[in-house]
Amino acid sequence: MTSWIDLDALWKIVVIGLLCGAGLPAVFTLGLRTLSRSERRAAAVTPVPDAVGLTGGTSTRVQAARAGAEMVVAGLCFAVVLAAIGWGVAFIVSHG
């Protein structure tokens, strides 16, 4: 049977294919989702200086920090996807 079907290559293609072909777009979408959430949060807590000159209360600062963290997570997601594309191109070139 294995002389007809290269099972070894087959399962690798399926598993790595799922990781790259479905996993990477998922990571990309996760990036989009966190980015969009971060933008909405940042828009909701637009700092309004109060009488003392401080910007916002504790909860506002926490929200702003969360928005920043989400931005970082989104950036990481996009970086992973970009790295994978870079690897893909490098792979095509080195394969030649």
Partner: peptide, 10 residues
């Protein structure tokens, strides 16, 4: 993404 991954891997 599925097409690109499958073709490159295979």
């Amino acid at each position: 993404s599925s097409s690109a991954a499958t073709i490159l891997l295979s």
